[in-house]
């Protein structure tokens, strides 16, 4: 079946299977490989993308369900003010090590900060429960978020 949707601001028409995941559609059909597959079961959050602004695990989200919707992936974050700030802060604060979880963290955080521009650290730790980072131990990721928030407040 064909679905028509917007991906990072661009209209796409894609043929998808009935059980196909959004992750498969992004990676294999649209060759947007920035979104990562870590577990395929909604446990690690590496595949997080935004669907109509909501952070979803694209590995367990139906590709067909995106029909008419807007999908934002890590590749589109550079076009977003908040996304760009977060990307820069992750690199500057040591929030990236192997980087495989980074796209999922960034997309999740874009959604979290759009809803609440100044979450506390405990709120952030809770909001990030669905994103696993095996490298950093999270502290420098939280530093990056703090730097993003303070940077945006200064502007």
């Amino acid at each position: 079946m064909d679905v028509t949707l917007t991906v990072n601001g661009r209209r796409e028409q894609v043929e998808v299977g009935p059980a196909e995941t959004l992750l498969g559609m992004l990676r294999e059909r649209l060759r947007l490989t920035g979104t990562k597959e870590g577990c395929n079961e909604g446990e690690c959050g590496a595949c997080t993308v935004l669907v109509d602004g909501l952070p979803v695990d694209s590995c367990i989200y139906s590709a067909a369900a995106t029909s008419g919707r807007s999908v934002e992936t890590v590749e589109g974050l550079a076009d977003d003010d908040l996304g760009r700030d977060l990307q820069a802060a992750f690199v500057a604060a040591g929030g990236v090590q192997c980087g495989f979880c980074t796209p999922g963290f960034l997309t999740t955080l874009v959604a979290v900060l759009r809803e609440n521009p100044e979450p506390s650290e405990p709120e952030l730790r809770e909001a990030l429960a669905g994103n696993i980072c095996r490298c950093t131990g999270y502290s420098q990721i939280l530093d990056a978020v703090a730097a993003t928030i303070s940077g945006r407040n200064r502007r």
Partner: peptide, 22 residues
């Protein structure tokens, strides 16, 4: 000094090609 990692931008933008992306 605090020097940003050279592969950081590629990793944070989705550009980095991991083994599974090849």
């Amino acid at each position: 000094e605090r020097v940003p990692r050279s592969d950081g931008r590629a990793k944070a933008s989705g550009d980095a090609e991991y083994g599974v992306d090849h």
